[in-house]
């Protein structure tokens, strides 16, 4: 007669898996104790935070015109960097995509480039470009561009790899060129994903561009750093609220576009 009793609920872990689990748990506990996080310090920090918040309100609107001007520069920096990054991400993604890349060497080289651009944070790129092209928005634009090649390149390549292979097979059977195949059968199918990635890149670029100013790469970040350095917290508050409004506005517009196009 066949065995009908239910199998054990849990599988007994092997020795290696169990050891790994213990090591990982130990590392997590050690990490908590290493970062100096304690209730005592957090409680002690509340009055300092309260004092700063008190000095932040009401926000100082005296420098609002200058802040809005810099906010516009920040947005333009994000927009231009993002557009350049997305344009360059597409050909690199094609070279990196399985089944579309013309040669394995090109595929691996493109994937390595995308990985490099993605793994190095945009702040580090900004530091490098500030040294290369000097202080100002140009360095910020280049940092955003490189970061977006890494971000969008990966998602563009994945979207193209996941596109339905049927239309591609139909066109390659009749002798269509690789370019024809990409623009006729792959890009149209990957387009919703391209749009979503591009809009998300823009949102990410706007948030990122604020920080880039802290290392001298132009935009509103420079103003924020100066305000904090001078303990000018009410001006800093105005800047933070302006940034908040910009990020929310970009996200809302992005949502509307996403809903319409996808």
């Amino acid at each position: 007669m066949a065995e009908t009793s239910a199998p054990a609920r849990w599988e007994r872990p092997n020795a290696l898996a169990f050891t790994m689990l213990v090591v990982v748990l130990a590392f997590i506990l050690w990490s908590f104790s290493s970062v100096g996080l304690s209730w005592e310090r957090m409680v002690r920090g509340i009055p300092a935070l309260g004092s700063m918040l008190e000095r932040m309100f009401p926000p100082d609107l005296e420098r609002l015109p200058r802040i809005l001007e810099q906010l516009l520069v920040t947005f333009q920096m994000a927009l231009v960097g993002c557009i350049l990054g997305l344009i360059l991400a597409f050909p690199i993604a094609v070279l990196a995509a399985e089944g579309l890349s013309p040669h394995p060497v090109l595929k691996h080289a493109s994937r390595a480039l995308i990985a490099l651009f993605r793994t190095v944070p945009d702040l580090v790129w900004a530091l490098l470009f500030v040294i290369a092209v000097g202080l100002g928005p140009a360095a910020g634009v280049m940092a955003i561009m490189v970061d977006k090649i890494g971000f969008a390149g990966r998602f563009f390549a994945e979207a193209m790899e996941e596109a339905d292979k049927g239309p591609q097979e139909a066109l390659s059977t009749i002798g269509a060129t690789r370019t024809g195949l990409i623009f006729s059968a792959v890009v149209p199918l990957a387009l919703p994903s391209f749009v979503a990635t591009s809009l998300f890149s823009l949102e990410k670029a706007v948030r990122g561009s604020v920080i880039l100013g802290l290392v001298g790469a132009g935009g509103i970040g420079v103003e924020l750093k100066v305000a904090f350095d001078l303990f000018d917290y009410d001006t800093a508050c105005t800047i933070i609220l302006a940034i908040f409004a910009l990020v929310i506005a970009v996200e809302q517009v992005s949502n509307v576009i996403r809903k319409r196009l996808i």
Partner: peptide, 21 residues
Amino acid sequence: NLVGRLSVLTNVIHGVQARMS
């Protein structure tokens, strides 16, 4: 094996890629 997101006419025109690019 049509490209669903594209128009019928565009899908038919893709057939010309046998002799044009």
